[in-house]
Nucleic acid binder design. Structure first.
Lengths: 333, 333
DNA sequence: TTGTAGGCGTTATCAT
DNA sequence: ATGATAACGCCTACAA
């Protein structure tokens, strides 16, 4: 592989000049620039990005940590991040945290050891204090999916309360009043917020959330199954079921059908997230769209702005979900 | 950040010695090693991986290109690759090809420009000749999901013919004889192979694949919908439908239900791939498991062996799919 | 076993 | 506008 030195020799200019035309920040006369370009073409020269990194203290790579690589949710997020970063010529180094504190911390260390210019992370197990300290370190960090006041300028978050409100309203508006709710794990902030929104909607319709209409799930399909089983076993006559995410909604629907409940006639179901497979299940799921792709793009834009001085990017820390009406909710008259 | 130089000073040894204990390839006396370790700890020293790369001509990063980041199929593959590479302390740089020739080539160039030690790619649009040339270049390449004789030692592939055979047999064994087949795009090798396997199974049961039982789909849900519509519109009285992947199976099932076909009683459906959502659709899909996670791990192992001289790894180029029986196939008596 | 010194391919700070 | 030249932080013969 040709080096900058050979190029300079062939072009009959100095090292520094070649470097200048590569980075075209400083002015170079058109004539010499052409000579250099010709030489580069002739030698099929490609700058060695590692050497560039060492000299410039910029790796042009961004570390990304997500819970897991499979799963529609993170897929969307990664897609948003990768596409905008790639357009800017930046590389994405990926790693996973698996929803375990030790592995999340380890992953972040792993990324830092690689001299990433910035980190974009979606953590679930690590403490707020840890995040605060991380954000105060020397490497820029964007945190997706949480809000912590001390580091709010690093956070990108969804209005989960609004989402919970919209989901509940989707069935309330259709006349449902006996509504089961399957929540996410109590220790997850988004689960708490979605629940708050749910309750607000119920209040608006003079409906109250008794404990008998509430079940705490786990954000995966078994939680939906167990939740619906719980309601059915206790002879709760619910006509609608609101689930704090699509996985649980899917699990509940499978259980419902196994117990000969006709969907959506005998049981309406609403999910949350609008992951890809929401349109693969039957009846197609009415759910709350979680704009993860956009949030991923925004995270990328934030690093582009703060780390690479890119201008004119509209930065937005808060995202609003919206309802996607499909066919899993029936009307009660 | 502390450098190797400061460590050497504090420990009272030379630069080279510090480097030796970092890479512990060469022998260092226990005493000096301890001095160095203490100094490193005291200074909270972390080697600069960029400088290491420049000097050693090793980046410890592997470039990964997939069609897209969302989608269950690639998620599984990436998970397999990342987990084994991460364990070995290697970094994964990710990019996408979007099933377009230009973008795939561009992505590969992008990865090469980053001095990856190796590439793992799953391409769909690029020509065989291009791949052959790529594999003969100076950077090691693993190609997942295709077989090309000239570069077979670079390839990891699934026995799609066997998979097609197993899928067909799943319904044949249950007594079905009027079987519609929705294939993948004609230009995809795996689609062709799955079809060959399908036909072999039919022959075994003295059943032939007339053109009226065949439809060419697109590997996404609309293909399944259109395929079933095609059969129904032409009054083909099929009792079973074999689809060349799960997405199409899902699309077909939705269409079936919209047209009041009871599943699986009136129509049995078989998919291919066993992606995550196959268990979210109802009835749960009988399908052919595509061991993408394992294939991803194997790709990672191959680079570990060929690039990083790791020993005792069992290398395997061919993978066999197996049938996963669930509830989407009924028995005909 | 340990130390010396040259080199990896750039960028960036000075001069000129 | 262009050219020397010193970093950047580490690896690795070669020597001792």
């Amino acid at each position: 592989m040709a080096t900058i030195y050979e190029v300079s020799e062939l072009a009959g200019v100095s090292l520094a000049t070649v470097s200048r035309v590569i980075n075209n920040k400083t002015k170079v006369s058109e004539k010499t620039a052409k000579k250099v370009h010709d030489a580069m073409a002739q030698l099929n020269y490609r700058p060695n990005s590692i050497a560039q990194s060492l000299a410039s203290n910029r790796t042009n790579s961004i570390g990304l940590m997500v819970t897991g690589l499979n799963g529609a949710f993170f897929g969307q997020m990664m897609a948003g991040i990768e596409s905008t970063l790639r357009k800017a010529g930046k590389h994405v180094i990926i790693t996973t945290g698996h929803n375990e504190e030790a592995r999340e911390k380890d992953g972040i260390e792993f990324l830092k050891s690689r001299n990433c210019d910035a980190l974009i992370i979606h953590v679930e197990a690590v403490s707020n204090d840890y995040l605060i300290e991380l954000c105060q370190g020397d490497i820029p960090v964007i945190v997706i999916g949480c809000y912590i006041d001390e580091i709010k300028q690093h956070c990108i978050e969804l209005d989960n309360e609004l989402g919970g409100y919209l989901a509940a309203k989707a069935v309330l508006e259709e006349g449902h009043r006996n509504i089961g709710y399957i929540s996410g794990p109590e220790n997850k902030l988004d689960a708490q917020q979605r629940l708050v929104g749910h309750q607000r909607a119920l209040r608006e319709y003079d409906c109250k959330l008794g404990a008998e209409y509430f079940y705490t799930g786990n954000y995966i399909d078994t939680g939906g199954r167990d939740g619906l089983k719980h309601f059915l076993d206790n002879k709760q006559s619910i006509t609608a079921l609101v689930c704090a995410n699509d996985e649980m909604a899917s699990g509940a629907m499978t259980y419902a059908r196994d117990h000969d409940l006709e969907l959506p006639k005998e049981l309406s179901v609403v999910g949350f997230d609008n992951v890809i497979f929401a349109r693969h299940i039957y009846p197609q799921l009415t759910t709350v769209d979680n704009p993860v792709y956009e949030m991923g793009m925004m995270a990328a834009n934030m690093v582009l702005e703060t780390v690479y001085q890119q201008q004119n990017l509209k930065i937005q820390h808060h995202f609003k979900p919206k309802l996607v009406k499909r066919n899993s909710v029936s009307t009660i008259n």
